[in-house]
Amino acid sequence: MIAEDFGLKGARGWAFRHVRVDAAPGTVVVIEGPSGSGRTCLLLALTGRMRPTEGRAEIAGLPLPRAMSAVRRISGLGHVPGVSDLDPALTVAEHLRERALLQRQFGGSPRALPRPRARRAAEARDRIDTALTAAGLDTAALPKGERTSVRDLERLEALRLSVALALIGRPRLLAVDDLDLKLSDADRAEAWRLLRSVAEDGTTVLAVCGQAPEDADTVIRTDENGEPDAVEPDTVEPQTVIRTNEEGAADALAETGRA
């Protein structure tokens, strides 16, 4: 992941600007800052779901904004409120089957469509099982197994399900918003261990949070006023520090669109 002078402007100002990132594949990139500081806009722009106003970025060699659709195909969204919310009325199994079906119809090779039904079902089940294992979600431990409704999941279990659904598509970039929202300290530590394990398997992870963990590979810090960071760059290496602007963030989301 590379970004140079990356920025997005809304009607009331810049959601973020002058973003510079250089992160190797298979690393954890954290966007840290308070809610409303433009951090979700930055996450969506780096995954090809919002069009930047200035600068450039590359995700797995694909240039932004020129190749936004291609970046969307290789990036997966875990929990991103308002964009990839789980349906509380559906069960875990229904979410998994739906995602596997969408992946087969729109994310796979057209040559796979004529394959025998039994083979397609087996391949889908293998994708699901692999994703569940990578996300650390043991469905057998849920109250009703895979028939458990999303509304009955604990916060950490719901996060693991969101990550598993994204991993069904075998993305090269996984993005998760509000990672530490409503999590206990113990669950927050588990969530970071989950994302670290995903990164260790070769997938770049982009996560938004209020406070970054000490072992994050790259940290992009945001604040409410967009003023330059007072910390000397040498004191935060190998982290990258930028600022984004709260005032323009809401307008950027409304103007640019999330998909």
Rank of each mutant, 00 (worst) to 15 (best):
R20I: 03
V21D: 08
D22W: 11
A24V: 12
P25S: 11
P25F: 09
G26H: 12
T27F: 02
T27S: 15
T27P: 03
V28F: 05
V28C: 15
I31C: 04
I31M: 05
E32F: 01
G33T: 08
G33C: 10
S35D: 12
G36P: 13
T40V: 06
T40K: 10
L42Q: 04
L43K: 07
L44N: 05
L44H: 06
A45V: 07
A45T: 14
A45F: 02
L46S: 04
L46N: 01
T47N: 08
T47G: 07
T47E: 07
G48H: 10
G48M: 10
M50T: 04
M50S: 00
R51I: 09
P52C: 06
P52D: 02
E54L: 09
R56Y: 00
R56C: 06
R56A: 12
R56M: 09
A57C: 01
E58I: 02
A60T: 01
P63H: 08
A70S: 12
A70N: 00
A70D: 11
R73F: 00
R73Q: 08
I74R: 05
I74T: 08
S75M: 03
S75W: 00
G76K: 01
G76I: 00
G76C: 05
G76F: 00
P81I: 01
P81T: 03
V83M: 00
V83Q: 00
V83H: 00
S84E: 04
S84N: 14
P88Q: 03
P88N: 04
L90F: 11
T91C: 05
V92W: 02
A93I: 01
E94T: 10
E94K: 06
H95N: 04
H95T: 07
R97E: 14
R97P: 00
E98T: 14
A100M: 06
L101C: 07
L101F: 10
Q103S: 13
Q105F: 05
F106N: 03
F106Y: 15
P110N: 10
P110I: 11
R111Y: 05
A112Y: 00
L113I: 14
P114Y: 08
P114L: 08
P114M: 10
